[in-house]
């Protein structure tokens, strides 16, 4: 039961996200760009940190 609610909640968030993106893309191209761009900036920064840990593990492995 709890799982179903979680899935439903997730589906709702996704549907809202798509709805928002469609409206923003239609009327406000720059708003849309901000949504996509900010998500990307945050994810790339996070990926950079993960890469740092991998690099560190590799160097300490060599040493």
């Amino acid at each position: 039961m709890g799982k179903i609610f979680k899935l439903l909640g997730l589906a709702l968030v996704l549907a809202l996200g798509i709805g928002l993106a469609v409206v923003a893309g239609d009327y406000g191209p720059w708003y849309f760009a901000w949504l996509v761009g900010t998500t990307m900036i945050v994810l790339i920064a996070a990926a950079g940190a993960v890469l740092f840990d991998t690099q560190e593990a590799a160097t300490s492995g060599e040493a």
Binding site: I41, V42, I44, A45, A47, G48, A49, L51, F52
Partner: peptide, 13 residues
């Protein structure tokens, strides 16, 4: 070092 990395990537874009 980690903060620098994250901030640099965040900032370049």
């Amino acid at each position: 070092a980690r903060s620098f990395r994250m901030a640099a990537l965040f900032g370049v874009i």
